[in-house]
Design a protein around this nucleic acid. Structure first.
Length: 575
DNA sequence: GCCGTTTTCGGCCCGACTGTTTTCAGTCG
């Protein structure tokens, strides 16, 4: 049974939940959570590391004990500690922690007083008014819990960043119109450009916080006010998104922006650095004793602990602090660095616009080339091209290029990688193209070894240029097929071909961690829109966001190259 | 349970808001 890093991480998360409910040492609990996070973000397969006898306790936050437990989970699928905890506590009790207002102490109190072991039992007890009898529980909390269990608020709900960005823009404009507000900005995971966000964090600078909070909580789109004080408010909008607003004085703005941008792990690391220098960091500033030494700008906060400003996309405690210390932060790629788009559909397959329309839309967005890469024949539902229709498209593109100045249409195909690793069109026609984008569109269920071999074999085709949406993942929906990405990347490097970062908001495939891995392996990434209409070129910005989280610079991005520099790279893979 | 330019033992980030209290624990981010 293939066991992914996420599976081991899930075991550790569950251990942490149960230990917490038992009232274990909070730092021990944190150690398990940190280890889970490390595993989830690790590029390499922990299963393979164990098989290779790699030094697991060299990983951050992993000591001898956790290293042994990782090996145990990899070998057995579970570990003795978890088995023991399951004997001591009801297995489903961890799910109760997801209810807002319920933390480990209250969950334990409910279990001990009312023998509540599951969400269903919790809901029933709340309905019957039995919760308020438990010490620390009153009618208000009971009503809140009843609502959460009834409306399934317990489920972790996250929104795609594109939707959240639009909502945040409107709210920020609203805040800026309040007279006392000097600045209003986004913070949290939204500012860090994560692909989904659980809530929208906003920050405003103003003298009179209470007034700002009051106006904000009366915004037309606010459905519920979860909390509201003099400096912060949490609300739920009509569309179901939760928004947290924090208001601070202008002199604290930079410190608060760092604080509320996070990530939590990044903030903790910063505060630790501060401690080493005898400084205390909080949302109001940087303090030496009573005296405030920084805080008006983000730069001043970072400078106080000896660091240059760090881009929010990097603030995940994944080495950015060490890089900042060494003055080796990457110069992250920006949307303006993209010169072209190497994965675009037209009406000839399942796109909605003509080649000419796509060219016009690309030019409007500052691009200087695009590759037409319609689907190949196997994808009949998308009206995929057979050799004859592709021949005619190639001729059509030649005629279009003859009329263009300062823009080039490249001839390509998004060819299906068949189950045996062969491509869906004959080499004779692929040879006439500028690039061949290969993609897996079926048989996602192959076992890891077969899926990996399938893609490696496809890359052996001398015409293969770019692997599209390399894992098949869908954001928050489908985990992607089981494939050894590291082997794929090493093959790509050996063959001189490339991986795509598909910028469709539902895909964002590669992930940030995989982008970082590609960079470490020395592979160029193509940030492609996979546009099916002119408007979808705007998705490129989302792809760039993801690439920034993956530490990519313009040098790491294939289509940040102007066409004269790109052509030889494409040609090298075309045999 | 981890970790070390103060330490191999004793630390481990910090503050706001709520509800249930009557001075604060618990939760959350």
């Amino acid at each position: 049974m293939p066991l992914a890093n996420a599976d081991v991480a899930a075991v550790f998360e569950e251990i942490a939940d149960l230990l917490e409910i038992q009232g274990a040492n909070p730092f021990r609990v944190r150690a398990y959570r940190n280890a889970a996070r490390t595993l989830q973000e690790l590029g390499a397969s922990v299963r393979k590391m164990v098989a290779d006898g790699a030094d697991l306790d060299a990983l951050p936050g992993i000591g001898p004990d956790l290293a042994a437990k990782i090996a145990e989970v990899v070998r057995t699928g579970t570990c003795a500690l978890l088995v023991r905890l399951h004997k001591e506590l009801p297995p489903a009790i961890g799910a109760l922690l997801a209810i807002p207002g319920l933390g480990p102490k209250r969950v334990r109190a409910l279990y001990q007083a009312l023998d509540i072991r599951s969400l269903d039992q919790l809901r029933d007890a709340a309905q019957q008014g039995r919760l308020r009898g438990v010490p620390g529980f009153g009618p208000t909390l009971e009503a809140k819990i009843l609502e959460a269990t009834a409306t399934r608020l317990a489920q972790d709900r996250r929104f795609p960043i594109a939707a959240a960005l639009a909502v945040a823009d409107d709210l920020l404009a609203f805040l800026c119109r309040i007279p006392d507000v000097q600045r209003a900005v986004a913070a949290g995971s939204l500012r860090r450009l994560r692909e989904t966000v659980g809530d929208i964090d906003l920050l405003a600078a103003a003298r009179d916080g209470a007034t700002v909070i009051e106006r904000f909580t009366r915004h037309d789109d606010v459905r519920d006010v979860l909390a509201s004080g003099d400096t912060k408010a949490s609300v739920v909008l009509r569309n179901g998104m939760q928004v947290d607003l924090r208001v601070v004085a202008p002199e604290s703005f930079g410190a608060a922006w760092v604080y509320f941008t996070g990530s939590k792990a990044h903030d903790i690391a910063l505060r630790r650095l501060g401690q080493e220098r005898g400084l205390k960091l909080n949302e109001y500033g940087v303090y030496r004793g009573e005296q405030r030494v920084a805080g008006e700008t983000e730069e001043s906060v970072y400078a106080s602990i000896g660091l240059p400003w760090i881009d929010p996309a990097l603030r995940e405690d994944r080495g950015e602090i060490e890089a900042a210390r060494a003055r080796r932060l990457p110069q992250l790629v920006g949307r303006e660095d993209l010169r072209g788009d190497l994965h675009v559909h037209t009406r000839d397959s399942d796109g909605r616009a003509s080649i000419e329309d796509m060219v016009a839309a690309a030019r409007e967005r500052g691009l200087t080339y695009l590759a037409v890469t319609d689907h190949s024949r196997r994808l009949a539902i998308a009206h995929g091209l057979d050799p004859g229709r592709l021949e005619r498209q190639i001729d059509h593109i030649d005629r279009i290029n003859a009329t263009l100045r300062g823009f080039t249409v490249l001839k390509g195909i998004e060819v299906d990688i068949l189950e045996d690793g062969t491509l869906d069109l004959p080499d004779s026609i692929l040879a006439r193209l500028d690039l061949v984008v290969g993609a897996v569109h079926h048989r996602f269920d192959l076992p890891r070894a077969k899926q990996t071999d399938r893609v490696l074999r496809a890359m052996d085709n001398r015409h293969f240029t770019i692997l599209a949406h390399p894992t098949g993942r869908l954001v928050d929906d489908r985990p992607g097929y089981d494939i050894d990405l590291l082997r794929v990347m090493r093959k790509a490097r050996q063959r001189g071909c490339f991986l795509e970062l598909n910028a469709q908001p539902t895909r964002l495939d590669l992930t940030d961690v995989a982008c970082r891995m590609a960079r470490d392996e020395g592979i160029l990434v193509a940030i492609d829109s996979d546009a099916h209409s002119g408007l979808e070129f705007d998705h490129l910005a989302l792809g760039v966001n993801q690439a920034r989280r993956g530490w990519l610079t313009a040098d790491d991005v294939l289509n940040a190259r102007p066409l004269p520099a790109l052509r030889p790279l494409l040609a090298a893979t075309m045999g």
